[in-house]
């Protein structure tokens, strides 16, 4: 579905990705893990069309990705929930959600999809007239995910959705991601929260210094000695 092959990217002369290869298959939840500065966000910026890779290839549903302008990526069925949510804070919840359906393809069935988002996040219906910046962090994350769902994506890419949220909220958001996935949306999940992400994901990749250091099924990665040492600390059992 999404295939990334030998992707290289840099900011100026600073190379961030040096040959990343990974894929997301239809119906999968794939976790992308790794320390700060490993290149996770850079990879997402490449997929979203915000950054041109220097080398390598990206294919989405068999057709090349990464040459087109960023705003056309959503139209093709890839929706990104960016790091830090990047909501339009001076607009209401409902306006943010409506902007999610801006792409021409997403305009069909906008009303029923809005109902779907409100069904997943009932609190957003109650707050639909409120300005987004008046919401709590957890509610803002719900708006961010809802805005991406409004684009009717086949692949949902999330960059650190758990950042700054209380553990219980993270649990409930991840539970909702599983439901969204059961509804037929593939998910690429970038996380620092290794345990939660691998428990949710079918497969995972570990990104280190711009390369894939390990990959495999969630449970396998969780037991991988390398992963345990690097991310779970010496006390991990």
């Amino acid at each position: 579905m999404l295939e990334v092959e030998g992707l290289e990217a840099s900011y100026g002369s600073f190379r961030v990705l040096s040959g990343v290869t990974l894929e997301v298959r239809p119906g999968e939840i794939v976790a992308l893990l790794g320390p700060n500065g490993a290149g996770k966000t850079t990879l997402i910026r490449c997929i979203a069309g915000l950054l041109r890779p220097r080398a390598g290839a990206m294919r989405w549903e068999g057709r090349p990705l990464g040459q087109a302008e960023a705003h056309t990526v959503v139209e093709r069925g890839v929706a990104v929930v960016p790091e830090g949510r990047r909501l339009f804070g001076s607009m209401s919840v409902e306006e943010n959600l409506a902007l999610g359906a801006f792409a021409p393809r997403a305009r069909r069935g906008e009303a029923s999809r809005l109902e779907g988002v409100y069904a997943i996040f009932p609190v957003l219906r109650e707050r639909r007239r409120q300005l987004v910046r008046a919401l709590s962090g957890g509610q803002q994350q719900m708006v961010a995910i809802g805005r991406a769902l409004m684009a009717d994506p086949r692949l949902l890419v999330l960059d650190e959705p758990s950042l700054g949220l209380a553990p219980r909220l993270v649990e409930s958001i991840f539970g909702l991601l599983r439901e969204i996935n059961r509804g037929g949306v593939s998910i690429l999940l970038v996380e620092q929260n290794v345990h939660a992400a691998l428990a949710l994901a079918h497969r995972g990749y570990i990104l280190e210094a711009g390369r894939v250091a390990a990959e495999g099924q969630g449970s396998v990665l969780l037991n991988d000695a390398h992963v345990r040492r690097a991310y779970l600390g010496p006390l991990a059992r």
Binding site: L50, H71, T72, A79, R86, M91, A103, A106
Partner: peptide, 24 residues
């Protein structure tokens, strides 16, 4: 209007606007 909202979104955060499919 739809494009009016898109213009406001672009003013607030043009990268986020691109991510929602707005031709900035």
């Amino acid at each position: 209007t739809r494009w009016g909202r898109a213009i406001r979104a672009t003013a607030e955060d043009w990268e986020a606007a691109l991510l929602t499919g707005i031709d900035v």
